[in-house]
Each structure stands twice: as C-alpha cells, then as structure tokens.
Design a protein around this nucleic acid. Sequence first.
RNA 1: GGUCCGGUAGCUCAGUUGGAUAGAGCAUCAGCCUUCUAAGCUGAGGGUCAUUGGUUCGAAUCCAAUCCGGAUCACCA
Length: 592
Amino acid sequence: MAIQQQIQQAAIDSLEKLYGKTFTAKDFQINKTKPEFAGDYTIVLFSLLKPLSKSPDALGNELGKHLTENHAQMFTSFNIIKGFLNLTVADSYWISVLINNYNNTSFGRGEAKHKKVMIEYSSPNTNKPLHLGHLRNNFLGWSIAAIIKANGYDTVKTCIVNDRGVHICKSMIAWQLFASGATPQSTNTKGDHFVGDYYVKFNDEYKKQVEELIEGGMKKEDAEKEAPIMKATQQMLLDWEAGKPEVMELWKEMNSWVYAGFDETYKRIGSDFDKIYYESNTYLLGKKTVQEGLSKHVFIQKEDGSVWIDLTADGLDEKIVQRKDGTSVYITQDIGLAQQKYEEYKIDQSIYVIGDEQNYHMKVLQLICKKLGLPYADGIYHLSYGMVELPTGKMKSREGTVVDADDLLDEMENVARKKTEDLGKVKDFTAEELKELYKTISLGALKFYLLRVDPIKKMIFNPEESIDFHGYTGPFIQYTHARIKSILRKEKAQDSSIIQGTGLLPLEKELLIELENYPTVIEQACNEHDPSHLANYIYTIAKTYNSFYTEHSVMKAESEEKKQLRLFICELTANVIAGGMQLLGIKVPERM
RNA sequence: GGUCCGGUAGCUCAGUUGGAUAGAGCAUCAGCCUUCUAAGCUGAGGGUCAUUGGUUCGAAUCCAAUCCGGAUCACCA
C-alpha cells in the first residue's frame, strides 16, 4: 500500500480509538509536506475540527501523539503548524521500500484486473503521409495502452484504416491523369509520399478547373460540382462501390504503396497493432443496427426514407443515421464497428484516441449506443486530444506548413548526431551503435515533447524547442539514466543487510519519497488516461537524482554503508526511469 | 446563435482534485568541471492565476456572469 494510504488508514484508526468516531478517506487530506516545514507527510486537520469540536492544536497534539506512540516504527516525530499536522516518516520505512523494490521489475505495476480494454489509435487515411498531428495521436495511443496494461488490464491495440472514399479516389484520378505509369519504385519515392503527392496534384488541378469555370460565368458552387476532375472522382467512387475490376486493381495497388510507406514509419516510431480494421470492410456495417433502432423506436424514418435519431432532449441535434438511398453514414459505420469489436474481443472498455474536433461525433456515438441499449455503450471512452499547432499558427496543407512526420524524424536524428559528435563521449561506439543511439535520443526527445503536455490541451510545437536536449526533455532523462548506469557498471548494489539501520540525508530521503510514489502515478495516469502525469513524474525523479548525484558521491562515499545505500538508490532510480520511460514508448541508453 | 474545451512568469507548460509564501523548463543574469558522464548542478530576477462577484476557516482549483481564443453543430469521413 502506498504510504499516503497507510497514513490515512493509521489516522482513521487513531481517530476512532481517540474519539469513537469513524471517518473515511474522503473526510480529510494527506499531502506531501511543503519543503519549508519539518516533516514528510501532512494531515490537514481543518475538516476534522468541526465534527470533533476540537481546536487545531488540541487535535493535532492528541492525534500526533497517538500516531507516533502506536506506530513507532512508522513515525518518528510530529509538529503542528496552524491546522497542519506534519509527520516525519522513519528512515527505516524508506529503506525497506528501497530494498523491496530496487530490482523488482514489476514495481509500479498493478494487479491483474481480468478485464479487456481496446485502444483504437492512429487510424490514418491512405491518401497522404503521416504528419505531426498523427505523431501526437500515435504516441498517445501507444503510451496509454502500455500504461493500461501496466495497471493489470489486458489490452488490444487497434487501428481503423480509412482506405476508401472520395479522398482516396482523388489521388487515384490524379495518378491516372498525371503519372504516366510512374510508381514509387520508378521514382524512388516512399509510397505514402508518392500517393500524397498525387492528392496534392488533384487539388491543384481542381482549383484551376474551378477558377476556369467561374471565369466562364459559372457560379462558385456549381463550378465546384461541375469541374471535370471532380466529376471523374465521383464516377470513380461509384465504380469502386460497384467493384469495377480496373478501379479495384488500381485502388489495391496504390493502397499497397501507402501501406509500405506507413509500415516503415510505424516501425520507426514503434507503433504496433494487434488488429487492423479496414474501412473498406466495415463501411457497410451498422445497417442491421438501423433496423433494430427502428423497431425499438429509437430511430425515426422520414417520408423520403432517410432515418434519423432525435437527440434534442439531450441537448444535441437531430442526427441522420441512414441516407434516403439506404446507404449508411459515418456514425452508423462506427456503431457497426463498435459492435464488431465487442463481438470479436468481448471487450470491457473501448478507448478511442481521436482529435477533439470529433468530440461531438463521439458524444453522439455513445449516446446512440446507450439508447439502443447496447451492452458496450458505457465502456466507450473518447480520449480526446488537442491539435498540434506551430508558433506561426495552424498547420495548413494548402499553405505547405504541414510538418511531415518522416522529415521531422530525419531532422531530429541529424540534430542528435551533431550534438552527440560535439560532446564526443561515445567515440568508441560502432557505426551501428551510433545509429541506434541517434534514433533513441531523437525519438526520445520528440515523444517526450509531445507527451509531456496534458492531451486535452492544444499544444504549440516549437521546432527549436523540440530539438533542445536540455532541461525538461527526454534526452535529459535519458542522460540521467546513462549517468546512473555508468556508476552501476563499476559496481553493483549487493549488501542490503548493512543499510537496514542507516540514516538518510535530505536528498537521499527526498529521492526515496518520490520513488515510492511511482505506483500511484502509474495508476493515476491510467485512471485519467493521461501519460503526461508520468512524463512529469519521471522528470522530477531525474531532476532530484541529478541534485543527489552532484551533492553525494557514490563510489567515494563517506562509508561502505553509505556507498551501498547509494548503489541501491541508483538501482531503483534507474529501474523507475527505464520502466516509466518504457510506458511512454521511450528507450533509455546505457551510455550517451 | 447552441454545445463543448481552453486562458497560470516574456515563451512552453505543471499545479497531487479545496490547503501553508503558486512551481518547472526555455530565455536573461551570476557562479560550479584535477572529484562516479557539465545533455549536469547551485543561485538571482520575472505573477492582478483573463475579469468581476459568490460559496468558507481557506479558492489558481468549486458556482455564476462577463471578456478573449479554439473546436463543433453536413444525406463528408
């Protein structure tokens, strides 16, 4: 049990014995004691004063005395300032935490919950390469899945590939018009970029045609519909739906180019999936649901045949679920897919990592599922995240300000190489080791930069800041880990018996108090679906360790006892840093 | 216009769910490498927590109103 809960429980027991009243954890708070006061943890007494009709001093003294007398092993002293009861926890407690966990690889992991959680993330369109926004999604999705797993849940990582629709046909048409048979191989271009270029070409051509039509006297709206290239695209979509062989063939080929490109990038950033759904297989799902909804009178059919749900009573709008021509819309497909996920995996919870522009859509999805009485409705959770913007404003593909994922990764890797070469600490590395290190550092920097922020907030991506390897960054933490490992290569912690009764210096104690909190942070990150808590926490650990490192020598410690103690502290710190970073999808090097 | 989200140091962000004198990093300034990796450490300056009112022992945190920014409200996905 975490120390905070232990204190709370001890206080509840003491209060019961002292005053015969039963309190719960919600009735009062335990906080970490502010550094300017003596003590480690603080019981805030204010909320207890009234029910017990006690003055802060009287209650503090009685409770403090009772706690220290009955838990002499745990608390060594107390003091009261205003309504705050500050308790000092015995050094021996922190040392026992250290000894019990220094080489415990499952430290911080939760017990098996026997529940299954599906995490849908990434979900790209197959008409253009991945960009910075996708990276935030991928890092978030991967990390939250790892965190959920660490808390003892079974996880299924999944991805729904948007591989059909008008946007795909646009690239296809442009390729037919302009490529004269070119392929990624023939042009030596990464497949997703190759296809993305034709998507851009489509838009250029489309724009040109619309302008020409407007000059010829057509209204803007009509011109947008009548442009030949757009009409060809619409026709292609119909042909695709009809399964016309040459269209299907082109579609399959172009998608295969994109997948080859995606695979490369996914491999590079570490994204992986247990199950991939393709929209071309799922877009017809949900039709059954429409029938069910009608018979349950959750949906209503209008005169023209279209089917709707009225959500005005819930503060939303009327929403269409099936077109008058009988085809299903986006939301219906999603209901169908949700159903399929549930049937295939019997999941207890389904997390969707999707941008906040779809908040409304996800709200509607869950609400409809609830109204239909579907068993998985309550398990739907939208992990909504804000847009990534540049210091100059939003990324706009039309203005060419979109930050391409592959380009960014290349650039970061170059910076990592340059900085590593400048420092010259790993000159003995082989070319292969160096390559691996540059990748580790650059990806660590990028992932940490994107994950350290609360997902719900939109964030500014400052290119200069993101390649800074000092301060609140991934490389700072990686560097701290490498420093620890450098010590542990010289000597390992071995004799835990001689540190049992040793005393702790302030920085040693502070570090142990923070390390003890690791399991609580992992749990919180899981409950709040927020890896940034973990990122912040690891940073704090690294920072405290670095202070400790400068202040106290390990190898030249004052005594053998101190040396062993610090070696154990090094072990545990390294484990927590490596384990925590792993949950963010970030590797930590042995040397850098 | 309706709904939802955000507003904390010059910039980027934390703030343990209502607790003590609001914290980090970057940037600026001043120090620290003959001592386990200086991608580090120590210190300084920098704040009307958007505004106003309310709730109470106590508010950046909860409530209300206002201001600013964003998203969304398609027979697109």
